[in-house]
Design a protein around this nucleic acid. Structure first.
Length: 259
DNA sequence: ATGGCCGGCGCAGCCGGA
């Protein structure tokens, strides 16, 4: 079972690159962030023709998440619980078969949080508390899960080309890292770090020649609940996709699980 | 040497992103 996450930065702008990558990588399940589309306008036929069922949680202009799957999904849930007044579309999940059991695949687009002196930063931190509560609830009910997506958190200095440049940024503020570590410390495993000590990036800004200079950061993560960790075979980042024509500023990251 | 972008919306230029 191959499961991938990718912030595609606009589905309509990625109608060449996204199918091309799916044909090459052939994930069983792919979750997308920043589809920047309402559900009605998502070009689902493009992906259905490739053998995927498509579930979206969209929003006009910004945000929006989607799950594509070649295996039949059940119990699709849209939105992150904990704040009925939150209208931003940043979370979708569904049950998928892994061997003889069902696990929950969750797709998240965690708020950026900049600038930190605006309401955006407390919104990010509150959203992270809701995410921690979601994970706690799933752990208590023993529903295994993979939390995949754009976390907008630089967890450690190695995950950033120049930590000094990012000092004070919402992506590595102590409050953001603290919440991320508290999520991890529930017992989750960072799939990339479980398989590699190398410096690996998943995002390179469009600006300032970030890609040719390799000024990247690692903010796209696949976090696994304890019951899944033993099934992990491999975790890779498809860095080459960033060099394709009309790329997203993020690249796909994926795992392979036993059965 | 410095600074450098892109997508959506909607048809100009602004907002949002990281």
């Amino acid at each position: 079972m191959k499961i991938a996450t990718w912030n595609i930065n606009g589905i309509k702008a990625r109608l060449a690159v996204a199918p091309a990558w799916l044909k090459e990588a052939e994930p069983d399940i792919a979750v997308f962030q920043e589809i920047k589309s309402i559900d009605e306008n998502f070009p689902r036929e493009v992906f259905e023709e490739l053998g995927y069922e498509v579930h979206t949680h969209g929003q006009k202009g910004f945000n929006g998440v989607a799950i594509l799957s070649k295996v039949p999904l059940e119990d699709v849930e849209r939105g992150l619980p904990g704040d009925p007044s939150d209208e931003q579309a940043r979370f979708i999940s569904a049950l998928a078969p892994l061997g003889d059991r069902m696990i929950r695949i969750a797709c998240l687009y965690l708020p950026n949080g900049n600038p930190v002196d605006t309401e955006k930063f407390p919104y990010k931190l509150a959203w992270m508390e809701r995410l921690i509560d979601w994970a706690k609830e799933k752990l208590e009910t023993e529903e295994d899960f993979i939390l995949a997506g754009d976390y907008n958190v630089i967890a450690q200095p190695i995950d950033c080309y120049d930590p000094a440049v990012w000092e004070g940024d919402a992506l590595c503020r102590p409050e953001s890292r603290d919440a991320f570590y508290r999520l991890c410390n529930l017992g989750l495993t960072d799939a990339l770090r479980a398989t590699s000590d190398e410096q690996v990036f998943t995002f390179w800004d469009y600006q300032a020649g970030a890609w040719p200079k390799n000024n990247g950061i690692r903010i796209d993560h696949l976090m696994m609940s304890p019951g899944i960790t033993d099934s992990l075979l491999e975790c890779q980042v498809d860095k080459h996709v960033r060099a394709w024509e009309k790329p997203s500023d993020h690249v796909p990251i994926w795992i392979k699980l036993k059965s």
